[in-house]
Nucleic acid binder design. Structure first.
Lengths: 148, 148
DNA sequence: TTTAAACATGTATATAAAATACTACTTAGA
DNA sequence: TCTAAGTAGTATTTTATATACATGTTTAAA
């Protein structure tokens, strides 16, 4: 039971931007900071941009900015938006061939469990991810100095 | 976010055996019924056997039997036993290289969400999977007639 | 007005986990 | 003693995901 790195990276990008505050961050910079694929991060960033989480600015001195205050970005929302396949087992997905589906109670039970999972994530925002630890995070992310 | 088929198959095997009741079922028969790989199912069965969920009987007229009453088999237990990798993101797993781990609040939050997920599954047993639908399930599984 | 830094987009390749297949062996009832 | 069943280990295939590559577009600064 995994979340994809895609989702993981999305959360990291948003957290990075939240820590940076008003300052722009480039994809290159974020990829370097986390030591991950710049190309993959680009796709994540485009997705986040299309979904309105961030603003992207092209050209020299361009970069990324959070589009909404961290308090308004729930983890549940991000996971739902980036984890494309949330169907836990075959019967949730297309091309289901499990013969007992019509009578099987597993699906509703897993649905309930999934609901409980997401409900927890809906209860937290990006701001909760920061908490008092913004300076420590900034240090770990090697963000130059106190932003803004 | 997926459970593996391995886990899915484990649940199906247990459900099949629960429906069959006192009667033995062979791996071959279960694989046929669900139209899945007999070989893969074999590994699942061995695992379930080692973990005490089922009894396996070799030789002619051999087969599988549930080792415990369905009321005592929780879905949470099965998932924990068969879904080998429950670490949702990198920082849960070995070889974690995410630099912000020491200050990142994502891990405890995901832990909480995972806890909520498992708690739901711990609240259901194999018996709940059957409910009143045993006859319907038996039909879908193409189990000859009313077992024992 | 040119250059370079940045994001945008599509495609191709690589990787890793999972699923499946194969082979040989053991058990035990008819 | 034959055959139906599980046991076990290994090898191959498949799939999803991640990564890389190639090319284009935008825009600020030199």
């Amino acid at each position: 039971m995994h979340l994809t790195r895609y989702t993981d990276y999305a959360l990291r990008v948003l957290l990075y931007l939240a820590v940076k505050g008003e300052e722009r961050a480039t994809i290159h910079e974020i990829a370097e900071s986390f030591g991950v694929s710049r190309n993959h991060l680009m796709k994540v960033v485009q997705d986040l941009s299309h979904r309105g989480y961030i603003t992207t600015i092209r050209g020299k001195n361009g970069g990324l900015l959070l589009n909404r205050p961290p308090e308004e970005i729930t983890l549940g929302g991000v996971v739902r938006d980036t984890e494309h396949e949330l169907g836990l087992v075959e019967c949730f997905r297309d091309h289901n061939e499990c013969i007992i589906t019509p009578a099987c109670r597993l699906k509703p039970i897993l649905n309930e469990a999934m609901g409980a999972f997401m409900q927890v994530l809906d209860g937290y925002t990006l701001a909760d991810m920061l908490g008092r630890r913004q300076p420590q995070l900034a240090r770990l992310m090697q963000i130059p100095t106190g932003a803004t």
